[in-house]
Amino acid sequence: MLKKVLIVDDDPDFLDQMEIMMQKDFDLIRATNQKEAEKLLETVTVDAAVLDLMMESADAGFALAYHIKKKNPATPVIIITSVMSETGMDFEAKTPEEHSWIKADAILSKPIRYEQLKHEIQRLMEEKNA
């Protein structure tokens, strides 16, 4: 059985591309915004989540990450963003104190390297199960 991974991005083409590249490896569940994702999560339990940062608000990804972690702190959450290159802002989810507000296990930037993303999802799921 493939692991269930929630993918959330407001760009439908980006979701399509993730599907093309990762449907062999995961059972993908898609949503296009924070609200839709939260509604889905009421009925579905996922093994990991990949979230776009900028959706209906500039930090919708963070808000959603928080929501997911509150339900189950063990669910791996990866945030994808192109914010870094645009604003020069740098989010690195590394130090424990940053973890306390970012609530994401990894932050990757666009354009996505799918091998890296797959690897990252798998690594985090193993880590959480251990």
């Binding site: 980006f14 591309q17 192109s82 645009e86």
Partner: peptide
């Protein structure tokens, strides 16, 4: 604007 211009670029690049 930068964001709006980058999204389609990223989509096309991905494809």
């Amino acid at each position: 604007l930068t964001h709006e211009l980058k999204s389609p670029l990223a989509a096309v690049e991905g494809y």
